[in-house]
């Protein structure tokens, strides 16, 4: 059994007091992996640095090997900067961040899988703009990453974080749920609210299939990072407002696992179902691999 296997267990950690939840996650996982707390912190700091570096290294002119991905994050930035957007600046930064990171990944730049490479844009897309907006110190961002990882481990151990195993609900869905819990933490919410945010985020992504066009982590993956980030904001706001998930988080994760098991293999990273099976995707596939 994994170290963290239920959301209730994390709530119990928080309730028993002593060190804050993120710190308890750090200490327990460091002990389990045979490293010191300092070594664990060093690793998490390196992950945060790599996220920041990837975000800063975005190049609007870069294109993926297939040519399907590139330049859209910059289009989005110019749109939001024009002041004509519907949602305004903060949401603009979240969407741009998600698209930037998704494009960086598709273009073979260095990223941090969170929890997977395909979903690497979701967490930084919400955490970095949040920190900029609220003046969050670095240590708090690190704490939020421990929260995200702790809750992510529950999803991985009860269900899955692999599109090939359980569809995109397990990649973008899991990333979104981890990000929602981390946002609730940063905004001062309780452990119960973190669980609610996780449950709400996951329910909203329930059943999402993994259907990469031509089998490449490009379409629809990059734009799903933007959707996952927005869904995390939505779930965190609801939970922080005191809206409860009527279904407990652990049961939602179990349901997601069951849905993953019911999914046809066509919808699990084989590139043969969903939008990957559309006529346009099929044409693209034969042109790309035929060349």
């Amino acid at each position: 059994m994994a170290l963290f296997y239920s959301v209730t267990q994390l709530e119990d950690f928080a309730a028993r007091g002593g060190a804050p939840l993120w710190r308890q996650i750090l200490l327990a996982s460091a002990e389990e992996s045979g490293v010191t707390p300092e070594q664990s912190l060093e690793k998490m700091n390196a992950a945060l640095d790599a996220m920041l570096a990837a975000d800063a290294a975005y190049d609007p002119s870069q294109r993926s090997h297939s040519g399907l991905v590139g330049g859209d994050a910059d289009k989005l930035r110019r749109y939001f900067e024009s002041g004509r957007s519907i949602c305004g600046e903060f949401v603009g930064r979240v969407l741009c961040g998600a698209m930037r990171m998704g494009e960086c990944n598709a273009c073979m730049h260095r990223i941090v899988a969170a929890p997977t490479a395909g979903a690497c844009g979701v967490l930084p897309a919400v955490l970095l703009p949040y920190a900029a907006e609220h003046g969050t110190p670095r240590e708090e961002l690190i704490a939020a990453l421990y929260i995200a990882a702790g809750y992510g481990m529950v999803i991985a151990s009860r269900a899955s974080i692999s599109g090939a195993e359980a569809g995109c609900q397990a990649e973008i869905g899991a990333a979104s749920a981890m990000a929602a819990a981390a946002l609730v933490y940063l905004h001062g919410g309780s452990a119960v609210q973190m669980s609610d945010a996780l449950a709400i985020a996951l329910k909203n992504m329930m059943g999402l299939v993994c259907d990469p066009v031509a089998g490449l982590v490009e379409v629809p993956c990059v734009k799903r990072n933007a959707a996952g980030a927005m869904n995390a904001l939505c779930a965190a706001e609801l939970a922080l407002a005191g809206v409860r998930s009527r279904i407990p988080a652990d049961e939602v994760i179990d349901a997601m696992r069951a849905v993953g098991a019911l999914m046809s293999p066509l919808l699990k990273e084989t590139g043969r179902g969903g939008v990957a099976a559309s006529p346009t995707a099929q044409r693209f596939r034969s042109d790309y691999f035929g060349s």
Partner: peptide
């Protein structure tokens, strides 16, 4: 824990 936040890697 670093299977959830990590690995740091070249995509995709």
């Amino acid at each position: 824990l670093f299977d959830l936040i990590g690995p740091i890697m070249v995509g995709p």
